[in-house]
Write a protein that binds this DNA or RNA. Structure first.
Length: 280
DNA sequence: ATACGCCCCTGGTGGC
DNA sequence: TGCCACCAGGGGCGTA
C-alpha cells in the first residue's frame, strides 16, 4: 500500500509522538519480516532517545542517540498503531514490533503480509545502506526536474509505467500514484520510457509533484488497512482520477459513444488504469 | 546492463 | 454457508 504520501504521513505521525522521547521498552515478536531482523534489534533500541525522523523514498528513518538509526519499510500492508501503554492490551494479531516511550505511549508495527522490513544502520551512513543506496531522486525536492527525469529514462525500452515504478528512477512512487501522475500529464502508461523527454517530461514532473503534494495534504489514501498513526483515515482516494475506476467516464472525456471510459490493463503483473483517449 | 516472471505472505471479495 | 480463484498499496532475485 503505502507509497510516498502514506509513508510521509506515517513518518510525521511518528515524529509527533516519538521525537525527543526515550524508548523505555522494545520488543520484536517475530524476526521474520521481509528479512530477518538484525540480532538484538529490540535490545539495541531500549533506552535510546529518539532524535529525529526523515523519509527516503518509501523508507522511514528514525535517528536514535548512540549513533544508530532504525530503518523501516511498510511493505504492502504495514501500518503503525499508536495507543496509550497503560491500556495494557496484548499485542494485536500481526503486531510484530512494539515500542513504549517514557511518556506512556505504545507504538506498534502491524504488518499481516510481512513484506515490510526493519533494520539498524549507523547514523550518517543511512544512505549507503543496501536498501537505500540505489534510490533515485526525491520527487518533491528541487533536484528533481525534467532534465533529471529524462536523463534517467533515456535508453529505457520499458513502458513509462514500469520505469516510474522503478525506485532507482525516482523514489517513492507506487502503483496508484504512477497511474494518477500519468493521467495528469496526459501520458500513456504504455509509452516507451525513453520517449518521455522534452515537453512530456516537462509535464510529467509537475504532475508527479502535484499528485504527491495533494495526497500528502489529504493524509494519504486509505483503502483496506491504511490509517494514519492516530487512527485517522487519509482521504486522497476520493481524489483519484483513474485508479480503480475502470469503465467510468474520465473527467476530460464526454463519455460514450465517443469514449469507452477509463481502461484497466496489466503491465508487469500490476493493474494500470488510464484514459486511452487523452493519454498519449 | 537490462527486463521480465516468480516469489515472499495474509486477507478480503465475489462467483458458483 | 462453503470453497476457491483472484486480487491487493512492494520489491528482490534468478533467469534470459
Amino acid at each position: 500500500m503505502p507509497e510516498l504520501p502514506e509513508v510521509e504521513t506515517v513518518m510525521r505521525g511518528l515524529r509527533e509522538r516519538l521525537e525527543g522521547r526515550v524508548i523505555r521498552r522494545a520488543a520484536a515478536h517475530r524476526p521474520d519480516l521481509r528479512w530477518k531482523l538484525p540480532e538484538g534489534f529490540a535490545r539495541q533500541l531500549t533506552g535510546a532517545r529518539v532524535r529525529g525522523f526523515r523519509r527516503r523514498g518509501k523508507y522511514i528513518l528514525m535517528r536514535l542517540d548512540g549513533g544508530r538509526s532504525v530503518l523501516l519499510h511498510l511493505g504492502m500492508s504495514g501500518r503503525i498503531v499508536l495507543r496509550r501503554a497503560d491500556q495494557a492490551e496484548p499485542a494485536g494479531l500481526h503486531e510484530h514490533l512494539v515500542l513504549e516511550t517514557d511518556d506512556g505511549w505504545r507504538v506498534g508495527f502491524v504488518d499481516p503480509r510481512r513484506f515490510g522490513a526493519a533494520d539498524l544502520v549507523a547514523t550518517g551512513e543511512e544512505d549507503t545502506h543496501r536498501l537505500l543506496a540505489g534510490l533515485g531522486p526525491e520527487p518533491l525536492e528541487p533536484g528533481f526536474d525534467a532534465a533529471t527525469l529524462s536523463a534517467a529514462l533515456a535508453g529505457k525500452r520499458t513502458p513509462i509505467k514500469a520505469a516510474l515504478l522503478d525506485q532507482g528512477v525516482v523514489a517513492g512512487l507506487g502503483n496508484i500514484y504512477v497511474c494518477e501522475a500519468l493521467f495528469r500529464a496526459r501520458i500513456s502508461p504504455r509509452r516507451l520510457a525513453a520517449s518521455v523527454a522534452g515537453r512530456r517530461a516537462e509535464r510529467l514532473v509537475p504532475a508527479i509533484r502535484s499528485t504527491l503534494t495533494e495526497a500528502i495534504a489529504a493524509g494519504g489514501s486509505s483503502l483496506r488497512d491504511y490509517v494514519q498513526p492516530d487512527g485517522e483515515l487519509g482521504y486522497f482516494q476520493h481524489a483519484w482520477k483513474v485508479y480503480g475506476r475502470e469503465g467510468e467516464r474520465c473527467e476530460r472525456c464526454p463519455g460514450p459513444p465517443d469514449c469507452a471510459g477509463i481502461r484497466r490493463i496489466v503491465q508487469s503483473g500490476r493493474s494500470t488504469f488510464y484514459c486511452p483517449r487523452t493519454q498519449r
